[in-house]
């Protein structure tokens, strides 16, 4: 499988999970929430400062259909996380041609990066 095709498939899976499958997720409180309310940890819980945000509680404000609202919120979330995360990782990444797994450290003489941390790339 080509890398491009794999990436496209991986993204598609995430979009389907967040956009379609999420509708069928359990709506029971999760472990923390349940324990917190059972034991009284949540007595002083405060409302989220952004609880009225347009995507609050994983729904799109103004969209009444629950399936559509939640699905849209999921798709927007996947896109937002991909944009912010992908952008961050692209900035942080090691520059130069991709040469994974093969510990050819030092061989790529053109890489200006590892000057401060010599040979750590080898691991």
């Amino acid at each position: 499988m080509t890398t491009k095709r794999f990436f496209a498939g991986f993204l598609l899976v995430s979009l389907v999970l967040a956009g379609l499958v999420s509708y069928y997720a359990s709506s029971s409180p999760d472990g923390l929430e349940k324990v917190a309310s059972d034991k009284g940890i949540s007595a002083k819980e405060k409302d989220h400062s952004l609880k009225d945000s347009p995507l609050g509680d994983y729904g799109v404000k103004g969209v009444d259909d629950a399936r559509l609202s939640g699905g849209l919120a999921g798709v927007i979330g996947v896109a937002a996380v991909l944009a912010v995360g992908g952008g961050l990782f692209w900035v942080v990444r090691r520059r130069g041609p991709a040469a994974p797994a093969t510990p050819a450290a030092g061989a790529a003489s053109g890489t200006p990066a590892p000057a401060s941390e010599p040979s750590q790339n080898a691991s």
Binding site: T3, S14, L17, A18, G77, L82, R93, R94
Partner: peptide, 28 residues
């Protein structure tokens, strides 16, 4: 992370974050 990310793994990491987000919506 600098040591873990290159031209190929950086996009994969972004997709992994997106997948984690999607999977976190699926309460079981």
């Amino acid at each position: 992370a600098r040591r873990e990310l290159d031209d190929r793994t950086a996009p994969l990491a972004g997709l992994t974050a997106a997948f984690v987000f999607a999977a976190q919506m699926l309460n079981f």
